[in-house]
C-alpha cells in the first residue's frame, strides 16, 4: 500500500502535540475515546473571542498511528478556521486525506468527535448558546 509522504509525515512527526490551559475561558477541551481499540484522544482549541477564529490547536493521543495521524491532521486544519467552519470538518475528509483503510476509519471518527467536543466546550464557556446549554437552562 502506498501512502503519500504527507501522511507518513503526520504519523512520524505529528504536529501540535501538547496542551493548552484547560481553565482559560477561550480554550475548549474535548476528550474522546474509541473503545474498540482502547484509544483516547484529547483535543484543545484556543479561540480569539473577538473574531471567533481558532488561533491555536493542540492534541494528545494515546493510541495507534492512524489515530495520531488523524488528530495531527485535524489540528492543522483547525487553525485559522472559525468555530463554525471547524464544525464542518467531517471524518470522511480525514479518511480521504490519509487514505485510511476500513479497519482504521474509526480513528477519523474519533478526530471528528474530538473537534465537536472541544468546540462545544468552548461555546459553553464563552456563553454562546448551544444545544446542550439550551437544554440545561
Amino acid at each position: 500500500m502506498a501512502y503519500s509522504d504527507k501522511v507518513l509525515d503526520h504519523y512520524n512527526n505529528p504536529r501540535n502535540v501538547g496542551s493548552l490551559d484547560k481553565g482559560a475561558s477561550n480554550v475548549g477541551t474535548g476528550i474522546v475515546g474509541a473503545p474498540e481499540c482502547g484509544d483516547v484522544m484529547k483535543l484543545q482549541v484556543q479561540v480569539n473571542p473577538a473574531t471567533g477564529i481558532i488561533e491555536e490547536a493542540k492534541f494528545k493521543t494515546f493510541g495507534c498511528g492512524s489515530a495520531i495521524a488523524s488528530s495531527s491532521l485535524a489540528t492543522e486544519w483547525l487553525k485559522g478556521k472559525t468555530v463554525d467552519q471547524a464544525l464542518e470538518i467531517k471524518n470522511t475528509d480525514i479518511v480521504n486525506e490519509l487514505s485510511l483503510p476500513p479497519v482504521k476509519i474509526h480513528c477519523s471518527v474519533l478526530a471528528e468527535d474530538a473537534i465537536k467536543a472541544a468546540i462545544q466546550d468552548y461555546k459553553q464557556k464563552a456563553g454562546v448558546p448551544v444545544e446542550a446549554a439550551v437544554q440545561q437552562a
Binding site: 500500500m1 501512502y3 501522511v7 507518513l8 504519523y11 512520524n12 495507534c64 498511528g65 492512524s66 495521524a69 480521504n96 490519509l98 487514505s99 485510511l100 483503510p101 476500513p102 479497519v103 482504521k104
Partner: peptide
C-alpha cells in the same frame, strides 16, 4: 500492512489450525 508501515494483526500466534480470519477492504 496498514498506514504508516504498521501491521494490523488479524490472527494471533498459537491459534489452533486450521484457523481463519476475515477482513473487509475497500477502495481509496
Amino acid at each position: 500492512e496498514i498506514m504508516g508501515g504498521l501491521v494490523s494483526r488479524i490472527l494471533h500466534r498459537n491459534s489452533t489450525i486450521p484457523a481463519s480470519a476475515t477482513e473487509v477492504f475497500t477502495t481509496a
